[in-house]
């Protein structure tokens, strides 16, 4: 195998992007999986996509548009999820379809070729610039840093928001911070992974880690490892088979999830109990 390709600047940029994006997305994925709101990720990634297209159409920086729209989606979804006025699935579903509709509307309105728009849909990690990498690095450091510093608030809020509130943790603020981080992560990874595919890089590594551990700290670490692994293995396959990298990254992450689900110790809950607590309690 000829590995001289890894000596090129664009490949090194891609490897670094996959590392940073993999970590940020998969840490955010832990929130999404444990809070049982997978649709929020889909909704936000489509909002980011719609925002980027609007910005392209009016001639602004697409990342600014993506960021504004994903924050807007967070600002709409947050209160709905928080107050339980509508079931969150319903409200997120409505916003998701609206965002998808807007995205196609803006794409239709855009004059000329649609290549820059399609690039945002599919992602193109191989053309990442130094600026993209800096943005990804900032987001990854902020996401990991905030989770590390406010770990106990995050843990309690994820576990049970009402309980967290009742012991005096600012759980509502934490929820909004989580939604905000999700939006920022999606925006930063949009160009690399693409609006359609990013959701699986958020969901799959965390869902795989979820199958394998009963410790939340370990779940964060495992998820980040799976995210980076998906990115790197996906890149390698993209190079070897000459296929789009966004697609191979997503397929790799799905394979990791399937393997984790297959070998999950949680599938055998009874066996696990008998093993760790021999003749234990009388429950």
């Amino acid at each position: 195998m000829d590995l001289s390709i890894f000596g090129y600047q664009f490949m090194q940029n891609a490897i670094l992007s996959a590392f940073l994006g993999g970590i940020a997305c998969s840490v955010v994925g832990v929130f999404v999986v444990l809070m049982h709101m997978p649709f929020i990720g889909v909704c936000m990634s489509h909002a980011a996509f719609a925002g980027a297209l609007l910005a392209l159409w009016v001639g602004l920086n697409p990342l600014a548009g993506a960021f504004a729209f994903s924050l807007l989606a967070a600002a709409i979804v947050g209160p709905l999820a928080d107050r339980g006025e509508l079931s969150p699935e319903t409200s997120v579903g409505v916003i998701f379809s609206l965002m998808l509709g807007l995205a196609f509307l803006f794409m239709g309105l855009m004059p000329g070729t649609k290549s820059s728009a399609l690039e945002l849909l599919w992602g193109s990690i191989l053309t990442n610039t130094r600026g993209d990498i800096i943005l990804l690095a900032v987001v990854a450091v902020v996401v990991v840093g905030l989770v590390a510093v406010f770990y106990k608030e995050v843990q309690a809020t994820i576990f049970n928001r009402d309980m967290a509130l009742s012991v005096g943790i600012p759980a509502t603020l934490t929820l909004y911070a989580i939604l905000f981080l999700t939006g920022a992560t999606i925006t930063a990874s949009l160009r690399s992974i693409g609006g359609l595919l990013i959701f699986s890089l958020i969901l799959n590594p965390a869902a795989a880690a979820y199958q394998l551990t009963y410790s939340m700290k370990r779940m964060f670490v495992l998820s980040a490892c799976f995210g980076v692994l998906s990115g790197w293995a996906g890149l390698l396959m993209s190079y070897l088979f000459d296929v789009p990298s966004g697609a191979t990254i997503v397929v790799t992450s799905s394979v990791i999830f399937m393997l984790a689900a297959l070998f999950s110790p949680k599938r055998k809950v009874k066996g696990w109990r008998a093993e760790t607590a021999p003749g234990g309690d009388s429950a």
Binding site: L34, Q155, Y210, Y214, S215, M216, R218
Partner: peptide, 11 residues
Amino acid sequence: DPRMPMSVRDV
């Protein structure tokens, strides 16, 4: 959720 990654002690 029976799969929730938190122990009794954590809670």
